[in-house]
């Protein structure tokens, strides 16, 4: 067992250079997220929520600071090792789903099989079952032909297929109607609970945030 399960961020700083000056966009002295808990990241637009999510996912290297997952310092890993870590540990849901419109719902869910070492054939049945669980009963429909609600469910299925230990969701209910948003929230929380995953959700949606164990507010890149 890892010595310190969960996510630990320390002295995270991200800056951008613009017009001859360096602008800080993220400054997090410390943030601890225990394994198996759900945490909401809230704050106004431009407060650094998505940037923080990308830092956690290893998509963005902070200028300095450390990101530690289950005792291993992810932020020290190289590009390839971080990609490998994401494949093994992380499931991501993006704000506007980022499905491949030309692929079917099932192929979208199975897309990571192409590079994750999982057999597409072996994952086909679980993927269809997961899609059915999420209410997608026509897995062979093209993503482009689906409603936004359906697309979001496919995106969630893609994130959950390999039972990730860390689920990162960026505005998963944005642009969904109220009913669908509630349903999505239920599904996401239920899936995370069922698999014991740590859930980090960026959202403005108070109904979603209220379902988290803890909500962290960000303002101008700092914890409020």
């Amino acid at each position: 067992m890892p010595s310190d399960p969960g996510l630990r961020l320390a002295n995270i700083a991200v800056t951008v250079r613009g017009q001859g000056e360096t602008l800080p966009i993220l400054d997090i002295p410390a943030l601890a997220i225990d394994a198996g808990t759900g945490i909401g990241l809230a704050g106004p637009s431009g407060s650094g929520k998505t940037t923080l999510l990308h830092v956690i996912a290893g998509l963005l290297n902070p200028d300095h600071g450390t990101v530690v997952w289950d005792g291993a310092e992810v932020s020290r890993l190289g590009e390839a090792a971080r990609a490998s870590w994401r494949r093994q540990v992380v499931g991501m849901v993006f704000q506007d789903f980022l499905l491949v419109p030309e692929l079917t719902a099932l192929d979208n869910v199975l897309l990571p099989c192409g590079f994750s070492g999982f057999s597409t054939r072996a994952q086909r049945a679980p993927a269809i079952a997961l899609l059915a669980e999420l209410g997608i009963t026509a897995p062979h429909r093209r993503a482009a032909a689906m409603s936004r609600g359906e697309q979001q469910r496919v995106a969630i299925a893609r994130a959950l297929l390999f039972r990730p230990k860390l689920i990162l969701a960026d505005e998963p209910t944005a642009s969904l109607d109220a009913m669908t948003a509630i349903a999505m929230t239920d599904l996401l929380v239920a899936q995370a609970t069922a698999t014991g995953a740590t859930l980090v959700v960026v959202s403005h949606d108070t109904r979603l945030l209220s379902r988290m164990d803890r909500v962290v507010h960000l303002d101008r890149g700092r914890l409020a």
Binding site: A80, A83, Q88, V100, G114
Partner: peptide, 9 residues
């Protein structure tokens, strides 16, 4: 997206 999902370069 592919790289975010863990695809190697």
């Amino acid at each position: 997206l592919l790289r975010a999902l863990g695809a190697p370069r």
